[in-house]
């Protein structure tokens, strides 16, 4: 049986707390799955217009440049009301693609991978 958290039917969990919307992403982020994530995040973000949008990558196992596009697109969206995007808990194996993208100039990419990371 597959872990339900990694089920592609649920690639994102959202929670709003004190003007901060946190999105926990999970599974594999590619062009196919990015669409569902984008729709869920944008629906919530456009409604509540949070000051901060935290994208938490701790449960993401794979990401190609579609994930970078996803982050860039949310930066653009939040900029409409001067909100900020924070990228959090990027696993070591995704660090290379994130640094290659130059995302650091568009949003806050926090140092430090997921807490449960024990390898590498």
């Amino acid at each position: 049986m597959e872990d339900p958290v990694q089920n592609t039917a649920c690639p994102v969990q959202l929670r709003l707390k004190e003007n901060t919307l946190t999105a926990w992403l999970c599974g594999e982020i590619d062009h196919h799955t990015a669409r569902k994530i984008r729709e869920a995040v944008d629906e919530a973000a456009s409604r509540v217009r949070p000051e901060r949008l935290i994208l938490d990558f701790s449960a993401v196992q794979f990401m190609d440049s579609s994930g970078i596009g996803l982050i860039m697109g949310r930066c653009k969206l939040l900029a409409a009301w001067n909100g900020r995007v924070i990228v959090r808990h990027v696993p070591p194996k995704l660090e290379r693609i994130v640094s290659l993208s130059g995302l650091q100039t568009l949003c806050d990419v926090e140092e430090g991978g997921p807490r449960h990371e024990t390898d590498q």
Binding site: A34, R38, S65, S66, G69, M72, G73, L100, S101
Partner: peptide, 15 residues
Amino acid sequence: GGERAGLGFAVMQSF
């Protein structure tokens, strides 16, 4: 445009 980062070839090249 829009949601595409434009990094596909750059990623292929560097990886």
